[in-house]
């Protein structure tokens, strides 16, 4: 039976996992949009950008015009916003730094050198276009994920990293698909989304539906084995929680987060792939809520930190 790691460290690992995944997935979404914009020079750039901001949870007032420059400044290169790609990389780095003693030195070096190379990569992107920067982020995220799997024991350290990664992935997959709901005519088409999720080859190999939107949606939401499918990520998250529960001494306390995730899985299991598109809004909302609720439940169950308690002397006023 595990003795339990410090809550503070567990929370740092969880967020490191989340932020690396966020950087990766945001880069995929932004890349898909830039691709879309490039393909259709007569399309409504402003509308496309607005929907991009919206699905990333950073809705901008419709009256304010946005162009590609804004997208780059605010969604790609911004260092302070942890929902921006660069901000997410820096946030991952900062969390990992404080948990440095429990991750492998290779994982740390990966994040540290990624952070150090951001400036260089940006200058390169200003020369040749943002695609190179976005690819850099995805490649480094992949490296980090690979090192996570290969250089630390698959115990609590690993479970929290992967748990964070999975919950973020569920949320981000939902956002990726949401682009087909919002201003669909200005958003990347289904095939582009498939490519953005790195799913093209896997999809083609197992599907018969060609470019049928229903089949693509079903693949990205329901497929049991594709890593970026929402269902698969739910399974991975549940497995992490199961392992954490089994390792611990608190089996008497019901793990709320597991229940939340399993309920989402059940709902997905009972959805009809043929009527998926009509259920899409409801399912995407379910996925985002599940991710958020599970996050809160995990935080209160495992972390329960009152971070950096600031004490006041009583009666001071």
């Amino acid at each position: 039976m595990s003795r339990g790691m410090l809550s503070r460290l567990a929370e740092l690992l969880y967020w490191t996992g989340r932020y690396v995944e966020r950087a990766d997935d945001t880069s995929r979404i932004v890349d898909a949009y830039i691709h879309r914009i490039a393909e259709d020079p007569f399309g409504d750039l402003n509308a496309a950008c607005h929907s991009l901001f919206a699905i990333l949870g950073m809705e901008v007032d419709a009256s304010i015009p946005i162009n590609q420059e804004t997208v780059l400044t605010q969604l790609v290169y911004d260092q302070l916003n942890p929902s921006a790609i660069t901000g997410a990389v820096l946030a991952a780095h900062e969390n990992a730094r404080r948990a440095r003693e429990v991750i492998s030195s290779e994982m740390w070096v990966c994040l540290n050198s990624t952070r150090n190379d951001l400036g260089l990569q940006r200058r390169e992107a200003e020369r040749v276009g943002p695609a190179s920067y976005l690819k850099f982020v995805r490649d480094r995220s992949a490296l980090f994920a690979g090192l996570t799997d290969a250089t630390i024991s698959h115990d609590e350290t690993w479970w929290f990293l992967v748990l964070g990664r999975s919950l973020e992935r569920i949320d981000m997959t939902a956002r990726l698909l949401e682009s087909r709901l919002l201003a669909a005519e200005h958003s990347p088409d289904w095939l582009t989304l498939l490519r953005a999720a790195g799913a093209m080859e896997s999809y083609l190999r197992q599907s018969t539906g060609g470019s049928d939107p229903e089949a693509i949606a079903a693949f990205l939401i329901l497929d049991r084995s594709f890593p970026r499918s929402a269902y698969h990520s739910l399974t991975v998250a549940d497995r992490c929680l199961e392992d954490l529960t089994r390792a611990g001494a608190r089996s008497d306390v019901v793990n709320q987060a597991r229940r939340t995730i399993r309920m989402a899985q059940t709902r997905l299991e009972y959805s009809d792939p043929r009527s998926l598109l009509s259920e899409l809004p409801e399912l995407l909302e379910l996925l985002e809520q599940t991710s958020a609720a599970a996050n809160d439940q995990i935080t209160s169950y495992y972390f329960r930190q009152i971070a950096a308690v600031v004490w006041e002397a009583e009666g001071a006023t």
Binding site: G4, L6, S7, R8
Partner: peptide, 9 residues
């Protein structure tokens, strides 16, 4: 107590 993922130790 120490705050851990398995409760207070």
């Amino acid at each position: 107590h120490m705050r851990t993922t398995q409760g207070e130790r």
